[in-house]
Amino acid sequence: MPLITYRKALNDALAEELLRDENVVLLGEEVAEYNGAYKVTEGLWARFGSKRVVDTPISEAGFVGMAVGASMLGIRPVVELMFWSFSYVTFDQIINNAGCVRYMSGGQIACPIVIRGPANGGTNVGATHSHTPENFLANTPGLKVVCPATAYDAKGLMKAAIRDNDPVMFMENTLLYGEQWEVPEEEYLIPIGVADVKREGTDISLIAHGRAVLTCLKAAEILQAQHGISAEVVDLRSIRPLDEETLLASVRKTHRAVLVEENKPFCGVDAQIASLIQEKAFDELDAPIQRISALDAPAIYSPPLEKLQLPTPDRVVQKALSIC
């Protein structure tokens, strides 16, 4: 299987879907002529032209709202936010319009839109550019939220997201764009709402989403090599809908869980996961559930400190050891 980058996997998914369905349109700041601020859309404007790949002004509330409106008439817009941090100026359009129109119309109106872009800290761009709003958005029934951790997942989930009839919030990671994974050449889709066990283990479950999955995989290696502990790594992939069965099955097997995310702790995604586990697998637990999130302050700029603010393999190892 060829090794390709997370960026290329997304690019391929977008190109395949543009080719497949003439109603798919890419919109966003610098997505066309500039080839994308992070080059995710590189070459697509040259290949598909200005009707299908559209540069917008810096006007997130306007163009996200416009895309929501267009989707109500059957267009399938894939809107890039240069950073998910900028979604905060268009929350009304995302939550009130994309998130509620199906419900408030009694199911008469669909909103098949994808909003995508990077949602991550760790790149020394300061608090305003380092937000991870997956918890906020997953709090809105009507929205779907996915956070792929690998190129393989990014491609399969993007294709599924574009074909989905509901609004999908697709959160990428600038630190992963250049990383490579094996991706098959044949077409495949990954259904939204299906988690993936990225590493099998028997002693403890490390449950994560997004880049934290990779942190957990590194921690699992250390736990195995240095402590003889077999850790299972569960990648949620999709936050809403959530594959409860897979994560609960892992906990029932290992009886211990550390939840890891780059989101902030207060009402983070893992607060929900912890609540689920204690409710549905309490008797299976041999130890209290542990959580590791970003350290609870605005994202600090200072490069060495910012590295510490996000979960590290070492912190995951320490937490795991505390309950093993």
């Binding site: 163009f63 416009m66 409106g69 267009a70 267009i75 408030m104």
Partner: peptide
């Protein structure tokens, strides 16, 4: 519709026009 957020419908109307032109 029928939209409860003041001016929230204004980009939606734009999007409907966008879809027609598209």
């Amino acid at each position: 519709g029928g939209h409860g957020i003041v001016a929230g419908q204004t980009p939606l109307g734009l999007g409907i026009a966008y879809a027609l032109k598209y």
